[in-house]
Every structure is written in C-alpha cells, then in structure tokens.
Amino acid sequence: MTKPTRKFRYPTKDSAPVRIALTLAGVAYIALFLLTPLIAVFAEALRNGAAAFLAAITEKDALAAMWLTLTVAAIAVPLNTIFGLAAAWSVAKFDFWGKSVLITLIDLPFSVSPVISGLVYVLLFGAQGYLGPWLDELGIKVIFTVTGLVLATVFVTFPFVARELIPLMQEQGVAEEEAALSLGASGWQMFWRVTLPNVRWGLLYGILLCNARAMGEFGAVSVVSGHIRGLTNTMPLHVEILYNEYNFAAAFAVASILALLALVTLVLKSALEWRYGDEIAATHRH
C-alpha cells in the first residue's frame, strides 16, 4: 500500500481553480461596473459621427460651460490649497489641545451629501436665507451666481489637499525645519526651501484630486446654480440639461470631455504613485 502522493503546493498560494475563479469574478465586476459605462460614454458621444461631436462641443453654450468650469476650479482649487498648507503646517508640526477634533472637522465635508453642501449656502445666502435679505440690500448676490458655485465647490473639495499633506508632514517631523532655522533661515526661507520641496509631490497629488472633483462636481453646484444657460451652467450641469432635452448625442459629447479629464487624472495619479510613491501619503497610509 503506497500512500497517494499529493502534488506539492506552496502553502501561501491559492490553488489554480480558486485563483482563476476569484480573478474572473473580480475582472467581471470591474468590467460590468467600471469599464462598460466608460466605453458607453465615448461610443454614444461618437454615435452620430465626428462632425456632430465637434459641433456639440464647440456650440456656444457648451463653450460657456467649459469656461465656467475652468473659472470655478481656478478659484476653488488655489483657495483649498492655501488652506491645506496652513492647516497641515499647524496640525502636523505642532502639538496643541483639540488637534484630533480639528482633523475630524477637516474631513467633515466628505461625509456630507453634495446636495446638503449646496443647501447650506442657500440657507445662508438664499432669498429667505439668514443673510440673504441683508446682502440683497447691499446689492450682493451669492445664490444663482458664480460666487455660489465657487462656495459650493470649495465645500465639497475642502479636505483633499489638507488630508494628503497632514499625514505626510507628520511623518517628516520637524528636524529639517529646525535645522534650517538654526542655520539662520527666516520663516519664509524655511518654508520655500525645506518644507515645500519636501511635500511637493504629495501637494501635487492632493491638488490633482481636488481639481478633478472641482471640475466634476454636480450635486452641490446644481443646488446653487439656478441652471442659467451661458451664465451659471458648469459642464456637468450642461450635460444634465442636454440629456433632459433628449439631446443625447450632445450630452454624451460634453460628457466625454469630462470622462477624458477623469482618465487624464487617473493616468497622472498612477504616474505620481508609481514614481513618487514614497513621497505621497495616500500610498502608504492606513
């Protein structure tokens, strides 16, 4: 009686059937939920041919929407970048009472519905808002203007830069800054020559994600925009209007520009993670 010999298998590796089954399940899930919608956007955009596609994205209201989206992002992203740097400097380099509460509050906008992010500004600045009538007398309008769009966008993209920089700067400690100061650097010299170069890739990573969300935000800006064509219509809102008018080809043409932006963001993000993974907090957090 010889014992049946079992083929040797690495104890830490899955058997082939398990591996194949799990890979198929995972790939099918990604294909079903991520790949098909992405393909659908581009296919629908080009359904009526390249000429119709070009006409849709160079139409007057579409161009105005693109310009507005760029404008809003160009204001909101730098504001949140300055906040992110200030918050990260105070939180990561100093120890003070109530620090963990502050970190939690910075993350708060991520757990708030985009619609609520817009709603809060209507409650403050709208016609029946707390400050609305008072601002109205001064001739200042916030809701249904670009100001409102910027505020709502700033709210939803609030944590991106700060939450990338805080863990990164905490990890780097204060030794290099202290050395710079002891060698006679001024505060600004220390910031520009030591702190900023140390966090540059992490900062860029945060700005990249912040910008993608700022350009693509829909719910929050939808509440404060008023959907005035050519004036307060950002690209995502323009997509909605075209879609609801059953102008599907034009809606998908504008949507494909946004999808292209998302793909560029993903490529840059992967490139940053691959090349500068050690200098980005997100890749070695948790």
Partner: peptide, 17 residues
C-alpha cells in the same frame, strides 16, 4: 488604476452612462 474611476469620473457622467 481603473478602480479609482468613480473618484475621478463626474457623477453626472456616470449617471447618464
């Protein structure tokens, strides 16, 4: 890289797709 698509793709685009 594709896993992060829902973070990057505007929600309205995902919705109509």
């Amino acid at each position: 890289a594709l896993v992060d698509l829902p973070f990057a793709l505007p929600t309205a685009v995902a919705g109509i797709a």
